[in-house]
Amino acid sequence: MRVVMAVLLLLAVTACGLRPASSFVPPVEPGSIRPIPALEGTTVRVTSKEFTEQLVLGKIAVLALTAAGADVIDQTNVQGSVNARASLTRGDADLMWEYTGTGWVTYLGQSKPIPDPTQQYDAVRDLDLRENGIVWLPPAPLNNSYTIGVTRATAEKYGLKTMSDMTKIPVGQRTYCVDHETFGRDDGFLGMLKGYGLQYGKDVPAGNVKRVSVGVLYNSVASGQCAMAMVTTTDGRVKALDLVLLEDDRHFFPQYNAAVTMRRQLADAHPEIAKLFAPISAKLTDDVIRELNAKVDVDGGVPVLVARDWLRSQGFVK
């Protein structure tokens, strides 16, 4: 109970918009990441979206590039996927972590996800380079996918195991909490309802859907403000709040493996960046990123310090 109360308090603070300054970067010394002479004097502008996992990944990129000798400009913490991505395609930023499914569906407008993670990566890598000049480095194992999360009590009450089981909840009690951005995306809430044969406005009345910020989403379902919430599988609050994740038995959601993306000009000029991130990406599994996310959202850690401590623990920096 103490853990849950601490999480709820932290989420209330986060919902008020209190976040550490994005420009703060602690000093690091090279570890297994050695200074790369070709990066000396090279300016790299790193961006990210505003949610916890993206902040942690963005700070990992900032610190790794700094340790390698680049002149890094920290532009992390951009509101919204589309805005962060646009900064890259416009040339206002050079590098960011992105997710294969988001790239494929949201940015490249593809309606059919590819279930195999390798084939999904290959497809988004090739099309994004051809159409937008964006280079995708090999992805991390972590797959930050969506699913429906419920409390353990709700799962037991209605016998919920898969997302198809959502229909076991009577229409009147079939309530959802959804974050603002995810609500209308093709790979988001409305798309998911359609994929599971549910009509918005009928099977799921509009009044049954509460749109909230990501900061209060998990608190909302845990506290009973809605029966179900559209959550991400690698969020650290899932375990802290003892939420049950329903299986995507119709395989609606794409693979969302995280990968470093960058402008072709930077990739061509500095191929050594791919070698820099390869061992880092390889260590970022679902369990690892879930733990790092929890250090921020549950324990109250600062994303850049969480990123630095992890890089230190793996010997990448000192």
Rank of each mutant, 00 (worst) to 15 (best):
N143I: 03
V13L: 12
G224R: 03
R130Y: 07
L245C: 05
W104S: 11
S220W: 01
L292M: 10
L190I: 11
L193H: 12
P30W: 02
L276S: 08
D71M: 11
L217N: 00
V124L: 12
A294G: 10
T52M: 03
G69F: 05
V46Y: 06
P115M: 05
G80C: 09
Q54M: 12
L137R: 03
A70H: 04
S81Y: 14
I273S: 02
A64L: 01
L160S: 07
I60R: 06
S223I: 09
G91R: 05
V3S: 13
N132Q: 13
A153H: 11
G300P: 02
V317G: 00
I36C: 02
V238G: 00
P139W: 10
A15E: 11
L129Y: 10
F252S: 06
T66R: 12
M262R: 00
L243S: 00
W97C: 08
L305R: 11
Y121C: 04
Y176G: 01
V317E: 03
F189A: 11
M96A: 11
N83L: 13
P205I: 12
R125Y: 07
V13D: 13
L10T: 07
L57G: 06
V7Y: 07
R34K: 13
Q314Y: 12
V124H: 01
A229F: 01
G159A: 02
P27L: 15
Y256K: 03
A267V: 07
P205C: 13
A282V: 07
A278P: 09
A6G: 15
R237N: 07
G31L: 03
